[in-house]
Amino acid sequence: MAAQDDSTYEAYYVPEQSKMALCATIGLVTALIGLATAFNDMTFGEGTENTHSWLIFNLGLAFFVGTLFVWFRTTIRENRAGMNSAQLKHSYAIGMQWFIFSEVMFFAVFFGALFYVRNLVGPWLAGEGAGEMNYLLWPDFSYSWPMMETPQDSVVGGAAAQPIANNGVYTGPERDMSFPGWSNIAHWLPLWNTVILLSSSFTVHIAHLGLKQNNRAKLNLWLGITVFLGILFVSLQILEYYEAYVEYGLKLTSGIYGTTFFMLTGFHGFHVCLGMFMLLIQWLRATTAGHFTADDHFGFEASSWYWHFVDVVWVGLFLFVYIL
């Protein structure tokens, strides 16, 4: 994007002083201190002390979310008051795009970790390739993915007899989450989730078209459907976690398979919730306040970019976590 020339110059809106940054900081830091203390109570605590950690967390979080609400409301109001130049809007767009890029990198780490443990660590632990001598430590471990038996399980005597002191206890699952065969395909939740999420990408696009054609009904309807599909996805995901924990014995502690499975799908699910929440807000703005015009609807656009991003991540997940 080249710099604009003189004739198109509009004054760039630099806001007055603002309390929002300070409040957001106070809220966020309080929440995280509360959360850290809560985790510490759980893992290191004596059980007798009452540190009010969850209370601190909740108060901080509420304050933080409240601040964000005011913050976004302010920017929306400024925009509707016509204070934002085209250039400022472009700054917002750049900001959102790079924010999404940072999220891509965040997911990349977890995919990278999955790749590394599946393709390198597993075989090494089983004494293949560069890990030739590891058979001395894990003599009975043989590797396959999904890892149903952890190296610890393979040691006779389990956790007590393992060659490394002080680990936790990692017991492999009874069943894995991958493709259960054609006959059970109807019960295979990830497939339905894929269908749901992919179609939601289309519905949000249709809503966007509606907005651009100034067809408000179309916008409201299809955006609403998108939000609904998001909720459906999250519900199925919760169902799947329930199944995994209760029926499959697949837990966070089920060794690296459970670890990567829950961390990848979990972070994705969290991002779906965020994206869905963003879309919900846009839907409320569109339906109740009549926001957005055919050529000025950055809030909607940013949320839909985010939604597409979440969708792409799911495709990666479906491939690498469930199918391959």
Partner: peptide, 8 residues
């Protein structure tokens, strides 16, 4: 979880 633990 067992990201950094060979036992898992």
């Amino acid at each position: 979880t067992s990201f950094f633990s060979a036992a898992g």
